[in-house]
Design a binder for these strands. Structure first.
Length: 421
DNA sequence: TCTGGGGTCCTAGGACCC
DNA sequence: TCTGGGGTCCTAGGACCC
């Protein structure tokens, strides 16, 4: 059986850990740059705040004291996520960390003491007790059904955080009420097409023929369809090195000054190459892109990107940084304000299998030693302690007006318990 | 005024090979 | 009228996920 453990309103739950006064209240966590809602407490959902809704549209609710708003604090969420994963690894030897707030576990009835429903509820309670994070645990014969079971946990508090779904008639009953758009693998596009054909529930989709599904959606859709019938087609996956690494941000204000934008891009390059080195890869390609504010239709729009190729695959911040800076200079138009920029590294090979270029006389040994020194210092003395001189001193120019402290990852932000009070 | 960031997989079609 | 058969590789675009 597969279990899906899904953290409820994860970012909001992380913020509430250190703000218990917000329990039972409407809370929203915003995307980077305080742009839009990415996590909402149940109370905030009830206020009508939608996923992805722009902040300015509900900022009045905050003024009226009806909702508390946070900037996203990924350092905190990443740390809490690792704690949850630690608890889950004790529950099963086979865990796939699917996202920051979801993990799949492989589980059999013996391990669970013969009662998987009880096991699911117990794991939910255990996780809450050890980490403070409320989770739903859905157990079913396939990953797709386990996702559905975990959603039922949120819908029905009587399940006490755990739901084991395996009998055919139970599954049929659930699917006949489950919205098709909430099925894992059915996105916005397919749902729009299918609902126009009168299909609205998971059961409507499951009732189509295999040929029809294959024709309309290809093999991926067929897998989803079979998983709904209880036939496992999607296995537990183990972490693979990334095939591309992207680092980009929107800025608080449009940037016009080339040096200014160069400083921001340089920081993106440093972040992306650090991730690249962490997975022991070297990149053959980098794409640099810039864009103006899409929403300001009154201003001139400009999007451009440059693909850079490296004769010798590299993970060197300075090599990639220098090439990116040149690309940026070529693209930037005078007087145009840029709202977003970024870099995508791609076409990787393992770092220890780099094929040298006959005409390349770079000192790769020296480069490797320097990068290792930078990474080691930053890992032990704090991110960004040493950096390339072209990086912006003040960091990425983002709006983060509602940022919570780094409660678990910075000595200066650690909670102080005052016994006198 | 104000609208996120980071990924993966699959498919069709074109170019090329013998 | 009818115009071979069997492949590979690459890319762009579309779909999906959180």
């Amino acid at each position: 059986m597969y279990a899906l453990v899904d953290c409820n309103n994860f970012f909001v739950s992380c913020e509430r850990l250190f703000r218990p006064d917000l329990e039972g209240k409407a809370v929203v966590v915003l995307s980077n740059n305080d742009g839009c809602a990415v996590s909402r407490s149940n109370e905030a959902k009830r206020l009508g705040i939608r996923m992805g809704q722009p902040y300015f549209e509900f900022a009045h609710l905050e003024q009226e004291g009806k909702v508390t708003v946070f900037s996203s604090n990924y350092i905190l969420y990443g740390d809490i996520s690792r704690r949850v994963q630690t608890v889950l690894r004790e529950a099963s030897p086979d865990v796939e960390v699917y996202s920051i707030d979801e993990s799949f576990l492989l589980i059999d009835e013996q391990m669970a003491g013969g009662d998987l429903d009880r096991w699911a509820k117990a794991l939910s309670a255990h996780c809450k007790r050890l980490t403070g994070i409320p989770v739903g645990v859905g157990v079913a014969p396939t990953k797709t059904l386990a996702k559905i079971a975990s959603k039922l946990c949120k819908q029905y508090p009587a399940l006490r955080g755990g739901c084991y779904m395996h009998r055919e008639e139970d599954i049929r009953k659930v699917l006949s009420k489950f919205p098709l758009e909430d099925v894992w693998g059915i996105g916005r596009r397919y749902f729009a097409r299918f609902s126009a054909l009168g299909m609205h529930t998971a059961a409507d989709f499951a009732a189509r023929s295999a040929e029809w599904v294959r024709r309309e959606m290809g093999v991926g859709g067929l897998r989803t369809w079979r998983e709904l019938q209880g036939v496992p087609c999607i296995e537990l996956e183990h972490p693979q090195p990334r095939q591309s690494i992207c680092c980009s941000r929107s800025f608080a204000k449009e940037i016009t000054d080339p040096n200014d934008l160069q400083g921001q891009l340089s920081t993106f390059v440093a972040m992306a190459t650090e991730k690249l080195r962490k997975q022991h890869s070297a990149a053959r390609e980098a794409t640099v892109f810039i864009r103006t504010n899409r929403h300001r239709t009154d201003l001139p729009q400009h999007y451009d990107s440059r693909l850079i190729t490296f004769a010798t695959p590299t993970d060197d911040t300075m090599v990639i940084g220098k090439a990116s800076a040149e690309a940026l200079r070529e693209m930037m138009r005078k007087g145009v304000g840029y709202k977003k920029a970024g870099i995508i590294l791609g076409n990787f090979c393992p770092r220890n299998q780099v094929q040298a270029d006959l005409f390349d006389n770079t000192d790769h040994e020296r480069s490797a030693r320097l990068m290792k020194a930078i990474d080691t210092i930053n890992a032990t003395h704090g991110a960004g302690r040493v950096h390339i001189a072209t990086q912006a001193k003040e960091g990425i120019k983002m709006n983060r007006q509602h940022l919570s402290p780094a409660y678990t990852s910075s000595w200066s932000d650690i909670i102080v318990v005052n016994a006198d009070k």
